[in-house]
Simulated assay, not measured.
Amino acid sequence: MDSAIRLRGLHKRFGETVAVADLDLDIEPGEFFSMLGPSGSGKTTVLRCIAGFEQPTSGTVELFGADVTALAPFARPVNTVFQDYALFPHLSVIANVEYGLKVAGVARKERRARAEEALGQVRLAGLEDRRPHELSGGQRQRVALARAIVLRPQALLLDEPLGALDLKLREQMQVELKELQRSLGITFVFVTHDQDEALTLSDRVAVFDAGEVVQLGTPREVYDHPRNRFIASFVGSATLLEPEVAEALGLARAPMAVRPERVLLDAPAGGVPGTIAEVIYTGPEHRIVVDLDGLGARITALEPNIGAGHRRTRGDRVTVSVEPASAAPLEDEAA
């Protein structure tokens, strides 16, 4: 089976700046694929090359087995949803959704039926006659999604579409996006700098840095086995253990990363002694920072907030341990 999206040697330069460096990437049909990275890492440029809004300096873009590198955006079997939803303020919800079909010459009766179907898929049935200013942020997002899927693209490209929403609404829309992708059965390519979104939504994640994919895998693979220091720090939080600290904790003498929820305090088998430097209350859990005796290093642990149980405080003495299987070896690179 052909890949939904196949990039080979994709290179994009803006003047002297290399935005994407000779990228090879395959995205499969029906996959929810996220491109994750900080600002300037190249992820949005790659999306724009797939959509046709940017022409690569070199390399090819194939969509569903066809080379589309030279094709205009409207000639590609994809549609794009941006962070700025760009709804027409003077048009009703259903007129906004119908607009692309009208431009394509679809007959009035068919485009109305397809627009109503798309609004039902994004849970906006009954709001057809409202104007965009009468909608909440989440509702406007769903109108933008309906306007994209009504054209029945083979792949949907989403460029940080949840960035303008508040936290609770963003979490709600994450669930709805995943449900929509499953119901449509088409490829979603999602660009974000939010690692929680990428881990929550994706079948696979490509982590970008400096125009390159530095790790590609399932959310679990990327989180549990970060390849290097950048990924360990950018995807979730982790303590980076230098070789002497790793060795003191009974791990391999190599640079390691350990997630805070995998750090054990006062385990029966003991561990490295230390003093609690800080306790940070986050609601569902406590983030506990420990200075390790004699190592000049700190390590962070998470403990659930279980209410009336024992509460740790600054200055408490503890022992720290890490199960070998819970720490990830990193590429040996400079700190």
Rank of each mutant, 00 (worst) to 15 (best):
residue 48 R to I: 12
residue 65 G to Q: 09
residue 130 R to C: 10
residue 127 L to M: 15
residue 80 T to I: 15
residue 74 F to G: 11
residue 90 H to G: 08
residue 134 E to H: 08
residue 110 E to L: 08
residue 96 N to G: 11
residue 70 A to S: 15
residue 68 V to L: 02
residue 69 T to W: 13
residue 45 T to R: 03
residue 41 S to A: 15
residue 72 A to T: 04
residue 123 R to I: 07
residue 104 A to Q: 15
residue 32 F to M: 13
residue 38 P to K: 11
residue 122 V to L: 06
residue 69 T to N: 14
residue 32 F to P: 05
residue 128 E to K: 10
residue 29 P to T: 05
residue 93 V to E: 09
residue 71 L to K: 14
residue 77 P to S: 00
residue 58 S to R: 04
residue 62 E to Q: 14
residue 126 G to N: 09
residue 80 T to F: 04
residue 76 R to H: 05
residue 61 V to A: 01
residue 104 A to I: 07
residue 53 F to E: 02
residue 77 P to E: 01
residue 132 P to R: 12
residue 74 F to Y: 14
residue 103 V to G: 00
residue 107 A to R: 15
residue 140 R to H: 09
residue 121 Q to M: 14
residue 46 V to N: 02
residue 62 E to H: 15
residue 117 E to M: 06
residue 72 A to L: 13
residue 55 Q to F: 01
residue 135 L to Q: 08
residue 40 G to C: 05
residue 118 A to W: 06
residue 141 Q to N: 06
residue 64 F to P: 12
residue 109 K to M: 05
residue 108 R to S: 10
residue 115 A to R: 05
residue 34 S to E: 11
residue 85 Y to C: 05
residue 143 V to Y: 12
residue 88 F to P: 01
residue 84 D to K: 00
residue 96 N to T: 10
residue 76 R to M: 05
residue 74 F to A: 14
residue 80 T to E: 10
residue 92 S to C: 09
residue 120 G to S: 09
residue 95 A to G: 12
residue 98 E to W: 12
residue 95 A to W: 07
residue 99 Y to E: 08
residue 29 P to G: 02
residue 51 A to G: 15
residue 61 V to T: 02
residue 57 T to R: 00
residue 115 A to L: 09
residue 144 A to I: 07
residue 78 V to C: 10
residue 54 E to T: 02
residue 74 F to R: 14
residue 61 V to F: 00
residue 128 E to T: 09
residue 46 V to K: 01
residue 62 E to N: 09
residue 28 E to P: 06
residue 64 F to D: 08
residue 122 V to A: 10
residue 50 I to K: 02
residue 134 E to M: 13
residue 94 I to T: 03
residue 78 V to Y: 05
residue 120 G to M: 10
residue 36 L to Y: 15
residue 67 D to G: 09
residue 67 D to C: 06
residue 92 S to D: 12
residue 53 F to K: 00
residue 57 T to C: 01
residue 115 A to G: 08
residue 112 R to L: 15
residue 88 F to T: 04
residue 54 E to P: 07
residue 58 S to Q: 05
residue 43 K to Q: 04
residue 54 E to Y: 07
residue 30 G to E: 07
residue 73 P to T: 04
residue 76 R to K: 03
residue 92 S to I: 11
residue 28 E to D: 14
residue 80 T to G: 03
residue 41 S to P: 08
residue 42 G to R: 06
residue 123 R to M: 07
residue 43 K to V: 00
residue 77 P to T: 00
residue 78 V to D: 04
residue 115 A to T: 01
residue 87 L to E: 00
residue 121 Q to H: 03
residue 104 A to W: 04
residue 105 G to R: 07
residue 137 G to D: 10
residue 142 R to A: 12
residue 76 R to I: 07
residue 60 T to H: 13
residue 79 N to D: 08
residue 45 T to F: 03
residue 36 L to P: 05
residue 141 Q to Y: 11
residue 68 V to W: 01
residue 118 A to N: 10
residue 117 E to P: 01
residue 81 V to G: 05
residue 33 F to Y: 13
residue 75 A to V: 07
residue 70 A to N: 12
residue 90 H to C: 08
residue 36 L to N: 08
residue 123 R to C: 06
residue 128 E to Q: 15
residue 133 H to I: 10
residue 124 L to C: 09
residue 135 L to S: 10
residue 54 E to A: 04
residue 56 P to T: 02
residue 91 L to W: 09
residue 110 E to T: 09
residue 113 A to E: 14
residue 75 A to H: 11
residue 106 V to T: 15
residue 56 P to G: 06
residue 49 C to N: 15
residue 59 G to S: 01
